[in-house]
């Protein structure tokens, strides 16, 4: 898998990277749900998950004020315990400078979506300019979207070249390549797109499931397909790519299942926010809530936690 891989036909691509059986992979991931994670191992998992959160706000109504409270939550997910900080905040490019201001010297990274997120339907020049803007504003990480239209019409080389161009534009910032799995539809396409992307990104970069803006986001199934692609890429090349499921992971329990998948597919070296992230917003409070439950032994009410959306 050393030569750039952009064959004309998906068939040839699959010959190289193999296919995915949909029913088989879904049965595999069901087993993660049967892992019973208790006591200390549960606490470790919950804290690990907190440290992996890319705390996200990606709305038209975002304001510096909203970003400020997000950053505060990121630095201190729970005001009464020593819960770890999250990995990053994830915002639109225009919010990066505000995030930079509020995060100060905190190790919490700033991730910015770019490349005409979420559709990517802008000229490449425009998309690259947006990436450069976000980096210039202080984004440590850039979350790009791939050109799904090109992918689905079989222009794999174009997809790959565009990703390579974004890598250049990122400079020293890390890149996360959003595949938008719901638009790729099949596990086969998800695997193919993962492989296309990984060929041109760097150690420390990520592949990411989705924008969170479509009906279907991260699932254990597509997470698993991407983890296996990362594993195969790593074993073939030695280049360790990170993974970020995004959207749809709202409960602590779900996140532990995703982490179990990481543990059993990629092993210990991926159980770190350098290589695994959760793109989420409400997940963080459920994690904190479960940590508190572990600490105190009592079930917690959701509204007791800052930034909670639940008021009932």
């Amino acid at each position: 898998m050393s030569a750039p891989l952009a064959p004309k036909a998906l068939k040839r691509l699959f010959d190289k990277i193999g296919t995915v059986d949909a029913v088989g992979i879904e049965e595999r991931v069901l087993k993660y749900g049967t892992r019973s994670i208790k006591t200390d191992s549960k606490l470790w998992g919950l804290r690990c998950a907190v440290s992996m959160v890319d705390l996200t706000t990606l709305e038209g109504k975002d304001t510096p004020g909203k970003v400020a409270s997000l950053c505060q939550k990121a630095i201190e997910p729970h005001e009464f315990s020593d819960t770890p900080k999250v990995a990053a905040v994830c915002v639109y490019p225009s919010m990066v400078k505000h995030a930079r201001k509020y995060l100060g010297v905190s190790p919490v990274k700033i991730a910015s979506v770019a490349t005409a997120f979420p559709s990517g339907q802008a000229p490449l020049k425009t998309r690259l300019a947006e990436v450069r803007y976000a980096v210039a504003q202080g984004a440590d990480e850039v979350d790009m979207v791939i050109n799904r239209g090109a992918f689905l019409s079989g222009e794999y080389a174009l997809v790959q070249d565009e990703i390579a161009a974004v890598v250049q534009a990122c400079g020293k910032s890390a890149l996360k390549v959003i595949l938008e799995v719901s638009e790729l539809e099949t596990y086969d396409s998800i695997r193919a797109a993962s492989c296309l992307a990984m060929q041109v990104i760097r150690e420390g970069d990520f592949i990411k499931t989705s924008t969170g803006k479509t009906g279907l986001n991260a699932t254990l199934g597509n997470n698993q397909v991407m983890l296996e692609a990362i594993r195969d890429h790593y074993l073939a090349t030695g280049v360790a790519i990170g993974m970020k499921p995004a959207g749809g992971i709202r409960s602590a329990k779900q996140s532990l299942q995703f982490l179990t998948a990481v543990k059993e597919t990629l092993g210990d070296r991926w159980l770190t926010n350098k290589r695994y992230r959760f793109g989420a917003s409400s997940l963080l409070n459920d994690l904190v809530r479960q940590i508190e439950k572990q600490r105190t032994g009592a079930y917690q009410a959701p509204y007791a936690f800052s930034e909670a959306a639940e008021s009932y």
Binding site: D21, A22, V23, G24, E26, E185, T186
Partner: peptide
Amino acid sequence: KTVWHPIGA
């Protein structure tokens, strides 16, 4: 003889 095959895309 009974044959099984997954239904999935």
